[in-house]
Design a protein around this nucleic acid. Structure first.
Lengths: 342, 342
DNA sequence: ATGAAAGCGCTAACAT
DNA sequence: ATGTTAGCGCTTTCAT
């Protein structure tokens, strides 16, 4: 019960020294301390030395919040991504690019919840971050219009915002699906099926549509081959049954997302999977260790993250510049599963 | 070149309304606006209505920075993790637990760089975050002593801080290695080898030591069986050669980290790997899809992340409470690779 | 129940 | 080259 050294009642902390304390200790004006802290070259060497000594003596460290309030900028950008828990190379690229530009990154996870996304974006706006990168989840972001009007830089990553006009960087979903289809086609497959996310989400819609277009372009019928929907083991098993059995079974499969790919592999089992030609949309962790190693069309995640920061910085520098959308192509990674002949 | 609507010279934004503007618009005092914004029940209904109308009309949103400066708390905790790019379930658990406590999470990646770690921690301190969780990387964190003295709550995750005394939550490395060893031993293996991270890093040191202890406890010789060091394909291939060839080849392997496990699988190739009994330390993404499916001793990542936040909140509530270290046991995940007989 | 005024810790005009 | 003074936008005594 005796008061511990330095500690006191719950919640309260020993008072930290401020610039005023340093100024008093050094026997100079507040402004001089500020100058030293900000490396202003117009400070006389003796003064600088005295101030630095006082800073060391008091263990003074400037309060970034006060500086931010005064200068109006935070030096921080926010990233609202859908999942922070899983491997997220885009986020890593954002962080590195941001850091290289002297910006701190505040990352938060929307967890595939519209309410959470809204809450996070609102919080980032209240904090007056210098800019925001968001992997949109909800379909309508009209509530951000006032922020855009007041000049808050916002960039969408992976798909466009809904209902508002903002800069965007995303993969070329349609051509990615085309690459996958053509690859299988070139390996002799005539019946190629698609399983992917539900069409309620943007990418699921885009990719299913692109796959239908590919079928049409090759003069093939669509029925029984295109299966967008919920990615659950049950549904995936059911649609695989439709696609792979019957009179004219598909001999190849395009999976529309990483989750789809993994679920398909789990449902089929390694044996069956090794007999079916598969090209996955989106990279899968350690795809080369799977058996057979997985052929995918991979998003250029690093480039996407980098571009997001660049778009944001451009918007920060010039709020009046025209809104820009950058589409990034995908690349085919040949590893085995996509080269199984018909 | 004509000025766009709302836009102006590069860098400048339209001025946002402040509380003063709202007060003027509503014809009330500043203090009343503050009361309404903070849901103070002592505001008369007509006043509240007027204020709310003004807020809507002006599109006013409070500036969190100013509030933070005034109240002294940020409502934000920092997490300095070693890698933000890869799957990081601890970080996800931290975020969820923090959110559940009404705290915002500022996550940053130290990227296995001591300088970067130091810079991030310093930045978080300058920002006066309410607390910091760090996955320590460097060996000496003495530079944080002044922060601890001034009451900054800091919690180490995964291993202890170096040179200072701070709360810590970590896995029970020694018993985890013991579990792996015993499991293989029970499946008839008499020669069990270990490959893992270099002993310069804390966990590499702990796990190699624990493995040596396990060998000794079973009355087995150590030479040729314990191989801590850099995890590169070259070195791993070399030490596997030593361990698996020769007069008395090992019939089972314990890998000391996720990276080690994956590198071993790559170096051996799936064929050879399927004949060697392997237990990995630490979970591997999609371990059940590998062939053979990978048996591991898994860290309780969710529990670790949760506990880190709980320790931090306890420290925030009472800066004087005794420093606490919580050790979390690991659990064996039997999947196939560890049950291959000798 | 409402308002006037002080101040959180810092930077930026403006002297000197 | 150094100091004085006024805020940044908010919360918080303290009056009324």
């Amino acid at each position: 019960m005796s008061p511990a050294r330095g500690g006191n009642a719950a919640g309260s902390r020993p008072k930290r020294p401020t610039m005023v304390d340093v100024a008093r200790e050094a026997g100079v004006a507040l402004r001089t301390v500020s100058r030293v802290v900000n490396d202003d070259p117009t400070v006389g060497p003796e003064y600088a030395a005295k101030v630095r000594a006082a800073i060391t003596a008091l263990n003074y460290r400037p309060d970034e919040r006060a500086r931010q309030l005064r200068t109006g900028v935070t030096g921080t950008i926010g990233a609202a991504v859908r999942r922070i828990a899983e491997a997220n190379p885009e986020l890593a690229a954002i962080e590195q690019t941001a850091r290289a530009s002297g910006l701190t990154l505040l990352a938060a996870s929307t967890d595939f919840e519209e309410a959470r996304e809204r809450e996070i974006l609102a919080s980032m706006c209240r904090q007056r971050l210098d800019g925001i990168i968001v992997e949109p989840f909800g379909e309508n972001h009209g509530y951000l219009q006032p922020e855009l009007d007041e000049g808050m830089p916002i960039v969408a990553m992976d798909r466009p915002m809904g209902g508002i006009s903002a800069d965007c960087v995303m993969s070329d979903n349609a051509s990615g699906i085309g690459i996958a289809f053509h690859h299988l086609s070139r390996h002799g497959h005539r019946r190629i099926a698609y399983v992917g996310d539900r069409e309620q989400v943007y990418s699921g819609r885009e990719r299913a549509a692109a796959f239908r277009a590919a079928l049409r372009a090759h003069g093939q019928p669509i029925e029984g081959l295109v299966h967008p929907g919920e990615i659950t083991p049950e549904r995936v098993a059911a649609v695989l049954d439709i696609a792979l059995r019957g009179p004219e079974p598909a001999t190849a499969l395009v999976t529309g997302s990483m989750d789809t790919t993994l679920t398909v592999l789990r449902v089929l089992g390694t044996e069956a999977a090794s007999r079916l030609a598969i090209v996955g949309f989106d990279e899968v962790p350690h795809a080369e260790l799977l058996k057979p190693a997985l052929t995918v069309v991979a998003q250029q995640t690093t480039k996407i993250g980098q571009t997001a920061v660049e778009l944001l910085r451009a918007r920060m520098a010039d709020p009046a510049r025209p809104v820009q959308t950058i589409v990034v192509p995908l690349t085919l990674k040949v590893r085995g599963s996509g080269e199984i002949p018909a």
